[in-house]
């Protein structure tokens, strides 16, 4: 793989438009966690014109529900969850200024269109690499919805969090392009 590109949050448009599918990145700075239940609440706030519990502009949202941290740990295991379940909510968050998403798995066309329209990028992290990814989390604090437990929104400080550009600002999709590239014909039977 080519050498990883370093990204610092909050993300700048010029950093994002330079990224192409298949690029390896190392993300540093503050990122926010949110998964199913938190998304439902965030979108309710946006739909009724209320403020979000954190500044979303230029930021990355990471789809993760970590395991509980042991004493002395910043976070427990913390790999990505399946992104597709967030698809119904994602365009609204992109309209509200979100610039990056970290998750795993393919996205539906409406999300890809919204990523292009809002010049945002979808990053894939390795599902099931919860321990490896947790090592890049230097600090963690809950910023909203503590009662949701693993689904609470957390602010994470990450250093060199490894991910791959899965959908870029031009709407290229590695879930389609990558599969096309390696698909082999069936043997004739």
């Amino acid at each position: 793989m080519s050498e990883a590109i370093r990204l610092q949050t909050p993300l700048q448009d010029r950093d994002l438009t330079a990224l192409q599918i298949g690029d390896a990145v190392l993300i540093s700075g503050i990122i926010y966690t949110a998964r199913d239940a938190a998304h439902k609440r965030l979108v309710e706030l946006l739909k009724t014109g209320r403020d979000l519990p954190f500044e979303l502009r230029g930021q990355i949202v990471y789809y993760v529900g970590p395991t509980p941290e042991r004493p002395g740990q910043a976070i427990g295991s913390a790999g990505p969850t399946t992104s597709g379940r967030m698809d119904p909510y994602t365009p609204l968050l992109l309209e509200a200024g979100m610039k990056g998403i970290i998750g795993k798995g393919q996205r539906r066309p409406a999300v890809i269109e919204s990523l292009v329209k809002n010049k945002a990028v979808y990053f894939a992290a390795t599902g099931g690499a919860g321990v490896l990814l947790a090592q890049t989390v230097k600090a963690s604090r809950i910023v909203a919805y503590e009662e949701l437990g693993a689904e609470a929104i957390r602010e994470l400080v990450v250093e060199d969090f490894p991910a791959i550009v899965a959908i870029d600002t031009q709407g290229h999709d590695l879930y389609q392009e990558g599969v096309k590239r390696y698909r082999q014909e069936e043997p004739t039977r």
Partner: peptide
């Protein structure tokens, strides 16, 4: 690269006594 990450992760999980996946 992904397969390497998975293997590294699974070895780390055993060594650190942490669950290999958050799910």
């Amino acid at each position: 690269e992904i397969l390497e990450q998975i293997l590294t992760n699974d070895r780390m999980a055993a060594r650190l006594g942490m669950p290999m996946c958050q799910d």
